[in-house]
Write a protein that binds this DNA or RNA. Structure first.
Lengths: 120, 120
DNA sequence: CCATCGTATGCCTATATCGGAATGTGTGAC
DNA sequence: GTCACACATTCCGATATAGGCATACGATGG
């Protein structure tokens, strides 16, 4: 068997650096294919192919605007990634995450009794 | 060119579901190869190969313990993923994250003036 | 030193990728 | 209707994967 299809997963889809860059660009709004291709220094067909993959895993949506097709981000598809990663937060926050720190601060401020401890 | 090597990235390494499961198991502590293989229902050689990949991208470390080799999580390698994903938080929190909600609650409780709004 | 356990590696095949170039499809404009 | 434009799809080749199986490696114990 070969590697799993790039379209099988958000995990597989974003394994490709260029696809990640596309998603980053789309954070700033919808864009047509040619725009993306030019900004990322790739050919139009390649951009189209990458967008196809991203579409199949539900990370982007298309909207026909005249003879252009505007691609837009659908970041809900990234949630599985986020959730999976969530299980590891405690590990890489050996040097605490700013958000974590913030939460702790606030937790103290509100004088909520702590109900979870950290072990290991 | 083919797909980028699985060992080129944490992104590529975790594209494989079994590799993700290995990492999840390692959250609970160090473990020898055979253990992992059995728990995940795969052959020992496969587990070894997956662990090799994970090692090459710095997601696990090995520690020789007698004639066993204990594999342990090194979650720092997941930070690039976390950081990349961070840029999208605002998007998938259309239906708010529990943590986000919690932070907001607490923010109100502490009566901190709000200094950022959510747009979309 | 030799047997044995735990683990790593080599070889093989099928599969699917990414890149490049050319060409197909569809929409709007004149 | 035809041209031009924006985009999608196809064919090609090189590459490297994951799985299965056999086997090599390394350390420990007797």
């Amino acid at each position: 068997m070969a590697r799993a299809a790039t379209t099988s997963d958000a995990f597989n889809a974003i394994a490709e650096p260029q696809r990640r860059e596309i998603l980053v660009l789309l954070r700033f709004g919808e864009r047509p294919v040619t725009d993306l291709a030019r900004d990322l220094g790739m050919t139009q067909p390649q951009a189209s192919k990458h967008l196809r993959v991203l579409r199949e895993v539900g990370l982007v949506r298309v909207r026909g605007a005249g003879r252009q097709r505007l691609y837009g981000l659908d970041a809900r598809g990234l949630r599985p990634l986020h959730e999976w990663l969530g299980g590891f937060e405690r590990f890489w926050s050996e040097s605490f995450d700013r958000l974590d720190e913030y939460v702790q601060e606030l937790r103290q401020a509100t004088q909520e009794g702590p109900h979870d401890g950290d072990d290991q």
